[in-house]
C-alpha cells in the first residue's frame, strides 16, 4: 500500500469533479455576472433523470439502463436543456436586474427544482447502480485505485481541453470570450447576446450532467440534497480562482480537492470532523491574500 500515489489519485479525482462544477458556474458568471446557485440542482436533476419517477426506496433504473453510448449524449443534452430552459424562463427576464436580485432568483430557482424532485421522488436517498464495474480497483504505481478515479481524471482533462479548443477556435467561443471580457463592448461589436448566453448555459448544463454521471457512479446514491455541497465548493472555487477566469476556476477546483484530501489524510484524528472548518479557513486566508482571486483576469480589476 503506497500512501502518496493514493493521496494523489484521490486529490486529482475529487479536484476534477470540483473543477468541472466550478467551470459550469464560471462560464455563466463570465457572460452575465450571474452567480448561478441553481447549478447544484442541475446536477441533482440529471442524477434523478437516470431513474424511474417514484417515491419507492428502491430505485429502478430508467435512462440508467441504456448503454453508455446512448446514455452519455442523452444525459448531457438533458443537462443542457434544463439550463437553457432556466435561462429562457427566468434569467432572460432579468437582464437589467442587479447581480444580487439575479443571485437570489437563481437560489429560488434551485429551490423550485429541488422541491419538484422531492415531490416526484420522495425525500429518502436511493441506492442506484450506474456502471458498478467502474468501482473495481486497479493497481497503478503501487496504489490501488478504482478505475473510476482514473476515468474522472481523464474526463476532466478531456473536458478542459475540449472547452479550451471550443473557446479558442470556434466563432461562438470567440464571442463568449469577448462577452466575458466586456459584455457591453462585445454587443456593440455585433455579438448576439442571446446566442452567447444560451450557449454558455447549454455548456454549463452539460458540465453539470457530466458531474452528475460521475457522482452517481462514485457514490451509488441519488439524494435530493446532493447538489448543495458541491455547488458551495464549486462556487468558492470560482471565486478564489478569480471570477471570470476559466483556467482559474479549474485550477482552484483542483486546489480545493487537493487541500481537502490532504487535510483528511494528515489532520490528527480528533480534529478530523472539523476538516471543513479548516478548509474554509484556508479559503478566507486565500481571499485575504489575493482578493481578486489566485488567477484573476485583467478585466476583473476594478478601474478607478
Amino acid at each position: 500500500m503506497n500512501a502518496i500515489p493514493q493521496l494523489f489519485f484521490d486529490a486529482m479525482s475529487l479536484g476534477g469533479i470540483y473543477a468541472m462544477a466550478a467551470l459550469g458556474i464560471a462560464l455563466i458568471f463570465g457572460v452575465m455576472n450571474l452567480v448561478n446557485f441553481a447549478h447544484g440542482e442541475y446536477i441533482a436533476f440529471c442524477v434523478f433523470a437516470l431513474i424511474v419517477p417514484s417515491t419507492d426506496a428502491v430505485a429502478v433504473m430508467f435512462l440508467g439502463k441504456a448503454p453508455a453510448i446512448v446514455l452519455i449524449p442523452i444525459l448531457l443534452s438533458i443537462g443542457a436543456a434544463v439550463a437553457v430552459a432556466s435561462e429562457f424562463f427566468v434569467f432572460r427576464h432579468m437582464r437589467n436586474a442587479t447581480p444580487v436580485a439575479m443571485m437570489i432568483s437563481s437560489f429560488a430557482l434551485g429551490f423550485v427544482i429541488q422541491n419538484s424532485l422531492l415531490a416526484v421522488y420522495g425525500s429518502r436517498p436511493k441506492a442506484i447502480s450506474l456502471w458498478p464495474e467502474l468501482n473495481t480497483p486497479v493497481s497503478i504505481v503501487g496504489a490501488s485505485v478504482p478505475l473510476l478515479q482514473i476515468i474522472v481524471i481523464l474526463t476532466t482533462l478531456a473536458v478542459v481541453v475540449t472547452l479550451a479548443l471550443l473557446l479558442k477556435k470556434t466563432k461562438i467561443g470567440l464571442e463568449m470570450r469577448a462577452a466575458a471580457e466586456n459584455f457591453t463592448m462585445a454587443r456593440l461589436l455585433g455579438v448576439k447576446a442571446n446566442v452567447v448566453i444560451t450557449g454558455a448555459f447549454a455548456l454549463s448544463g452539460a458540465l453539470a450532467a457530466a458531474v452528475a454521471m460521475i457522482m452517481a457512479t462514485q457514490t451509488g446514491v441519488a439524494d435530493i440534497r446532493m447538489g448543495g455541497q458541491i455547488m458551495l465548493v464549486a462556487f468558492i472555487a470560482t471565486v478564489i480562482g478569480g471570477l471570470g477566469s476559466l483556467p482559474g476556476a479549474v485550477a482552484a477546483g483542483f486546489l480545493i480537492g487537493a487541500a481537502s484530501v490532504i487535510l483528511q489524510g494528515f489532520l490528527p484524528l480528533e480534529a478530523r470532523p472539523f476538516r471543513d472548518a479548516f478548509l474554509y479557513t484556508l479559503v478566507i486566508v486565500s481571499l485575504l491574500l489575493r482578493p481578486q482571486g489566485l488567477f484573476a483576469s485583467n478585466s476583473a480589476k476594478p478601474r478607478v
Binding site: 458551495l232 462556487f235 468558492i236 471565486v239 478564489i240 470532523p273 472539523f274 476538516r275 471543513d276 472548518a277 474554509y280 479557513t281 479559503v283 478566507i284 481571499l287 485575504l288
Partner: peptide, 12 residues
C-alpha cells in the same frame, strides 16, 4: 464568499 466560508465554518 468569505461570509459564506464563515457560515460553513460555524456550521461545521
Amino acid at each position: 464568499i468569505a461570509t459564506f466560508a464563515f457560515l460553513a465554518i460555524v456550521y461545521t
